[in-house]
Every structure is written in structure tokens, then in C-alpha cells.
Design a protein around this nucleic acid. Structure first.
Lengths: 141, 141
DNA sequence: CCGATATATACAACATCACGTATATACCTG
DNA sequence: CAGGTATATACGTGATGTTGTATATATCGG
């Protein structure tokens, strides 16, 4: 369980993190909120603790878990360069919307709202923009 | 492979996403950059495509992959509430850094979001905030 | 049309993870 | 000390993911 992503890729752990965002909780409280057997909760908390997501404070027999900021902060830091990436996309979207709002007098060529959510393959053609440098054909392995 | 986290929890996929942040790449280019066998690259790209992280444009026999913003944007959105959470912690961190001048928290350029800083808990204070007025005993289920 | 190139997919082996069950440890109350 | 409560851990099992090998599909050059 190395990475921040691996830790959060489990839905119950994600739920625990979300719950702990609001306030600290004991194991039993998490157990009830999530409707999970106690060993499951404890094991997920163990993973979260090893990864630095939570810290624990003993309170008699109870263990009160609370969120720690570091791992999520590092996630935020990792994400930073990507914000710069989709900024232009947002701009493009905004410009598009601006034109639309400004009046679609332009009658924009029928293109009827592509359904294209994500994983389609637009039938587009692309010129060989291959950095002009690597005309490799038979790269011998 | 449901969640954004699950997709990014694999280091090679994370590397691919980072590479595609800089510019689009064909499968062969990724193959060489990452020193991975071609089927492995293709399979990871398949996962990324199904999850909406990348889109592909055919260029003769090549397939040129480029990054798509949506999934990472949703990750950013998920992270938003947590920023409010660690804001107070940032104050503490800043005070600490002011004294230490220990800058090392930055976006990894290709660095694989290292193992979460687990128990390297900076010498922080732990208030005895054990809700001192809750001497719960045996709570019956 | 043929061979080479580029990429995708099928299949099997293997590792990892999450879960349930059982049990261990610690603390509290009487 | 005894019994109950709260949590952690060990072990076996089934599910899922990753990888390597082999093969299929499509395109290009001649």
C-alpha cells in the first residue's frame, strides 16, 4: 500500500476519510456509521494510519481517530501542475459559452451537441506532428 | 476499476498521466520512455481510456494519446473540502517553516508521489481534547 | 499483394488485497 | 479478580489486478 492513491482507492477507506473530515471518531462510531464489521474497520484504519492519513488518541479502551493533513496535501501538490493543464480547457469552454451566450447568430454549423462524454474515439485526422525528429521505422529491440 | 484513485494507484499509469501532461504521445513513445513492454502500455492505456483520463487519435498505424481534464478535475473537486480542513494546519506549518526554512513540499515533476509520510509526524501538539465529559461505559448495541 | 510496423487483445500464471472468523490484548466496573 | 466492552491481529479464502507470451488487426511501403 504505497501510494496515496492506493490507500484511497478503497471505498470504505474513502468513506472513513470523509467521515473524519467532519470530526474525529472512535472505531465503534465508524463501525456503526459505515455498517461494517469491527475488524474490517480496524484494518482499514491500520492502513490509513500507516499511510499517515489518520492519527489515533487513546481514550480508555477506545481509540479516537482523527484526520491528518499531510497525505492529502501531497495529493493536492501533485495535482497542482494539472490545474495549469486544464486551465486552457476551461478558457476554451468559457469562450465557447461566451459565444453561445453572446447570441448564436453565427449559426454554428449544425454540430449537434456531441454526446461524447469520455471514452469515444473521435474520427479525427492528425498530421504527423511528431517533433520532426524521430523518423524511426524499424527500431530493433 | 471504478474510481479515479484506483486508476491512478498503479505507478505506471501515474507515470503515463504525468508524461501526457507535458505533451501527447504515441504508444511507442510511451513504451520507450517507460521501458515497458508494449502490451503492458496498451493495457494501461486501455484502463486510462475507459476511465476518461486519455483520448486517442489515430495517426496511420500509430495511436496518439493525449490527456483529458475531466477525471483530474473531479479529483480536484473531491479534494476541495479538505483544503478548508488543513487551512488551519497550514498556519501551523508556516510558522514552523518560518523557523526552519525547510522547503521541500512541491509538486513532483515525474516523481511518483512518494510513499505517504506516515508516522513522521512533525512534533506536533496533541490537545487532551478527549471530550472529557463523556465517560461512556458499556453502550449496548 | 507481401512483408514490416504499430497497436490491441486473449489467455494463463502469479501477486495483492479485502473480507470473515476466531482470538488476543487492554481497560473499565463492580 | 471476574466479566464485559473496545479494539487489534492472525489465518485462510476468494476476488481482482498486473504481467508475460502469444496472437490478431490494421496500415504502410514497394
Amino acid at each position: 500500500m504505497e501510494s496515496v492513491f492506493a490507500v484511497l482507492s478503497e471505498r470504505h477507506r474513502l468513506a472513513i476519510v470523509s467521515l473524519l473530515l467532519e470530526e474525529e471518531h472512535s472505531v465503534g462510531e465508524l463501525e456503526r456509521r459505515l455498517r461494517l464489521p469491527q475488524p474490517t474497520v480496524s484494518k482499514h484504519l491500520r492502513v490509513l494510519r500507516d499511510a499517515g492519513f489518520v492519527e489515533v488518541t487513546p481514550d480508555a479502551q477506545r481509540r479516537v481517530y482523527r484526520l491528518r493533513p499531510e497525505p492529502l496535501q501531497s495529493l493536492d501538490a501533485w495535482l497542482a501542475p494539472f490545474r495549469r493543464f486544464w486551465a486552457p480547457h476551461l478558457d476554451a469552454l468559457e469562450r465557447h459559452l461566451d459565444r453561445q451566450l453572446d447570441g448564436e447568430l453565427d449559426a454554428p454549423r449544425g454540430a449537434p451537441l456531441g454526446p461524447a462524454p469520455g471514452s469515444d474515439t473521435p474520427p479525427r485526422r492528425r498530421e504527423p506532428r511528431a517533433t520532426s525528429s524521430t523518423p524511426r521505422k524499424g527500431s530493433p529491440r
